[in-house]
Structure formats: C-alpha cells, structure tokens
C-alpha cells in the first residue's frame, strides 16, 4: 500500500522496437516498477504458469502476435482462477468502439489504443498503471474495472 511497494508490470509484444519504447517510457515515469518483457503469447503463458507465486500486477498485451495472439492469451488467463487478480491491459492499433467493448466483455480491464508519440505513450501508461494501483491497494471491485484510453 505504501509507495515503496513495487508495481510489477509485464509486456508481451512481438515487435522489438515497441518493447524498447515501452521500456523507456516506463522507466521515465516517477513510479516504482519492475518490468518483464516477453516476445509472444506462448512465452507469456509459460511465464505465468511458472511464476504463480510472483505474478505481475498488470499485463500489457499486444493484440497482434504470431502463434498465440493477445485475445487467445486474454481468454486463457481469464479462464484460470489463479490469475484473477491480474489486470489485463490490451494494447491495440484499433480504436473502434466495437473492439473496445468486445475486449472488455472477454475480461480485459484496460484498453489502450497505441499512441503515435512517446509523450502520449508515457501519459497513457502512467494513467493505466496508477489507476490499476488503486484497485490493488484500495479493495475496489476488479470485476467492474474498465479503463479505455
């Protein structure tokens, strides 16, 4: 609950450049985070099953990934009760109302339309991470946590 606590963030994205930008953006925020970067959905699921006692607070999921895409990961994660406390933020190029609504219905909490510039990226990541933190530290109802930015 105190600020000294570390917010565990994970990103699964197959685009190397996007991963680097994400890492730089997160590290530039005045928030105490630890970051795990993974390249695809298969790695992500393996990581979650292996690290059951040290799960991330929030996962940023790229929708378009080879082999296992973001939506498949989302469904698999939401089927497993062990992962119920993890916040899932979908990271997508689409900003259509329908896509947003559909991903929320599938169990996502946050929907981020990938921003075009670095400052916007920093702003949306900060909003997602700090708002999510309130849900982890104030006993708010995660079942009805939605944020679209």
């Amino acid at each position: 609950m105190a600020a000294e606590k570390i917010i565990k963030v994970l990103l699964a994205d197959d685009d190397a450049e996007d991963r680097i930008l994400f890492k730089e953006a997160i590290e530039s925020l005045k928030v105490n985070t630890s970051l795990t970067l993974l390249n695809d959905g298969i790695q992500l699921m393996e990581y979650l099953y292996k690290n059951g006692d040290n799960l991330p607070h929030i996962i940023f999921l790229d929708l378009n990934m080879p082999m296992k895409n973001g939506l498949e990961c989302l469904q698999e994660i939401r089927k497993n009760n062990k992962f119920k406390d993890i916040t899932i933020a979908i990271y997508s190029t689409s900003g259509s109302e329908k896509d947003i609504e559909d991903t929320f219905v599938q169990g996502a909490n946050v929907y981020i339309k990938k921003p075009n510039d670095f400052n916007s990226l920093k702003r949306v990541l900060l909003e997602a991470i700090t708002k999510d933190w309130q849900y982890h530290t104030s006993g708010l109802n995660k079942e009805t946590f939605f944020l679209s930015i």
Binding site: I100, F146, L147
Partner: peptide, 9 residues
Amino acid sequence: TTGITPSTF
C-alpha cells in the same frame, strides 16, 4: 474516469 459511458458499462 473509465473511458466508457454508463450505458456501455
């Protein structure tokens, strides 16, 4: 606060 309207919610 949420990015969606009460009716979408």
